[in-house]
Amino acid sequence: MRIQPSYAVRRVAFAAATLLAAIVMNFLLPRLIAGNPAEMIASQTALGSPEVAEAIKKQFGLENDSLLYQFKQYIVQLVHGNLGISYFNYPTPVAEVLLKALPWTLGIVLLSTVLSYAAGWLIGIRGALKPGTWFDNAALGVSFFINSVPYFWIGILLILLFGYKLDWFPMGQAFSVDYDSLSAAGKLRSISYHTVLPIVSLAIASLASHILVLRNNLSRALTEDYMVLARAKGLSGRRRTFHYGVRNAFLPSFTGFMLSLGHVVGGAITMEIVFSYPGIGMLTYNAILNHDYPLIQGAFLMIAVSIIAVNLLADLIYPFIDPRVNLN
């Protein structure tokens, strides 16, 4: 199987266009809602001195009120990889603040996403293959229920039970307070230990919908005409199920999986707050409440780039899984 060049070019062009639009939107968003950010900075005067405030204004190209001028400055800086300087973390650059928080979020969200998809698919396939069994019914019922629960509630209950009552896991944070004095292995252990509850909560919270999606798709696929045809052709049950059924049912789930991967960076605001986890979600939340525009812009841009990149990747992988895509 090969990717058709025209298809690839279209997808890349689309990604580029989205990225461009995202940059424009990202630039406009805080300015649209917040009125004049220059005023905001003036009142915030980072370290209390007017000179500093003036310097920051200049840094962001805000000394000139013209939106076009500001946009030019923004693009010029972006091209140089400069996301600006966070107001509240002055004079730390936004990129540095973001990069410090990124690994934490990537770690927990990535692991929990993979975990919940893996578990969700397994349970979903089993349910669809044996519809009506106790396993299927139980899985369905529980999934429906979990789907209806506020997901931070799951986090809270887990903290209360395993963190406070049973004292098995820490109630929050990314590592223990003595982290700096630990050996490399000790650090890793400390981090892993602290990720268990957040990962499990995130995985449980998203597990249900994965089960439901895969189960529904698979049950539908199993009753499609081509399955009947395959049966008529005398193909073995196993071959039928996997080559025709699961493969077709898997496609929408694959799209969903890639979408989730794209959302990994921005995905866990509430959960990070529940677990006091120092990731991008918490950072974004604080930045918003602090009206820290450069940081909000930076976070959104990073999220946008990751989503666009992953979507592009998904688009380019897709023809290998579903040859029909290439035809159009």
């Binding site: 989205t18 959302h263 921005g266 995905g267 605001i269 939340y285 959104f300 999220i303 946008a304 989503i307």
Partner: peptide, 8 residues
């Protein structure tokens, strides 16, 4: 719009 984190 889908690339903006809705909660944020």
């Amino acid at each position: 719009l889908l690339i903006i984190p809705v909660m944020a």
